[in-house]
């Protein structure tokens, strides 16, 4: 592993820096100094390598030409995976990096069943939080992570279909709009946050580094025990609704990006979760409320 900042920057600017997150090793090169700074701030505490590692994905963050590098700087990325990303202004370079890495995992990872979901763990209890965008799953995952849970991911649940284990893939949390202030309040400390990126197609975006204690255990899996589908609704009364096994099963299928590719083992693994875990839908209007509901479900259903 490398720790010396100068050599890290040199790697990142040149041939590429190796970064391991959970089961995935990426070689990243970034040609823009400002984007390198954003990157190194949000990925502080992540394991970085310069030594011999076998590489999963290559990500290059560069300018298309001299004009795009110096005169009207624009960040282009290449994931080597049929991407077609719109170049972004240099000031939003970190977004490109994150989109590129998400793309590579979403389309490249087939060894694990991927859920579009957050995952956290406490006392050996794995909690899956699958949801569509806007349901608040990132905020809820991050809120739990900074409230005593171990953070696995806010975006990619990774399940080993053979063993039934969930694996951490603790990338920075992607927060949008109102949830940024909510999380800054929650932590009472701005250091783990990135700059706020305003005017993106999804509004304002800000990244949050997961707790260092979660990063230290990024290779320790857990068994899933509880599945909670959050529904954020600003004016609604909070509610807990149990799901039938069949509903739980089909919702998991729908949230999985590669269920169809993996085939029979994924079918068995998801059916096992649907039958053996407890599954609920919660409706909530604030982060405190959501966390109270999660704890209530755990207390009442898991010994």
């Amino acid at each position: 592993m490398v720790h010396d900042l100068l050599s890290i920057k040199r790697q990142l600017a040149g041939p590429g820096l190796l970064m391991g997150v959970g089961p995935i090793m990426t070689r990243i090169s970034i040609k823009f100094p400002s984007v390198r700074d954003d990157f190194l701030h949000i990925y502080k505490n992540y394991p970085l390598y310069d030594g011999p590692q076998i590489i999963d994905y290559y990500l290059s963050v560069h300018a298309k030409n001299v004009y795009r590098r110096y005169l009207r700087p624009q960040v282009t990325i290449n994931t080597l995976m049929n991407d077609d990303f719109v170049p972004l202004p240099e000031s939003m370079g970190l977004l490109s990096v994150e989109m590129g890495m998400n793309w590579q995992v979403a389309f490249g990872c087939k060894t694990h069943v991927l859920f579009h979901s957050g995952v956290v763990e406490k006392n050996g209890i794995g909690l899956i939080i699958p949801a569509i965008s806007g349901s608040g799953k990132s905020t809820l995952s991050a809120g739990l992570a900074y409230d005593g849970w171990r953070f696995f991911s806010d975006e990619f649940g990774m399940l080993d279909a053979q063993t039934g284990d969930l694996f951490p893939y603790p990338r920075p949390v992607s927060l949008k709009n109102e949830s940024i202030a909510v999380m800054k309040d929650w932590l009472g400390n701005d250091e783990p946050f990135s700059r706020e990126f305003e005017g993106t197609p999804k509004g304002t975006i800000c990244y949050l580094r997961p707790p260092a204690s979660s990063l230290e255990k990024m290779h320790e899996p857990v068994k899933p025990r509880v599945v909670i589908h959050p529904v954020y609704s600003p004016n609604a009364k909070s509610d807990i609704k149990p799901l039938t096994e069949t509903m739980a099963f089909f919702r998991l299928v729908r949230s999985s990006a590669n269920y169809g590719d993996i085939g029979a083992p994924a079918f068995r693994a998801l059916a096992k979760i649907a039958k053996e875990c407890v599954s609920f839908e919660i409706t909530y209007s604030s982060l405190e409320e959501a966390i109270r509901l999660v704890n209530k479900i755990i207390d009442e259903n898991v010994e």
Binding site: P23, M25, Q53, I54, D56, G108, C109, K110, T111, G260, D261, I262, G263
Partner: peptide
């Protein structure tokens, strides 16, 4: 083969098998 190589090749293997299916 190294475990990491198996992991990377397994991604491709599953992907291709799925396309063939």
């Amino acid at each position: 083969l190294p475990e990491k190589v198996q992991q990377i090749l397994t991604n491709a293997k599953i992907d291709t098998a799925s396309r063939q299916r």
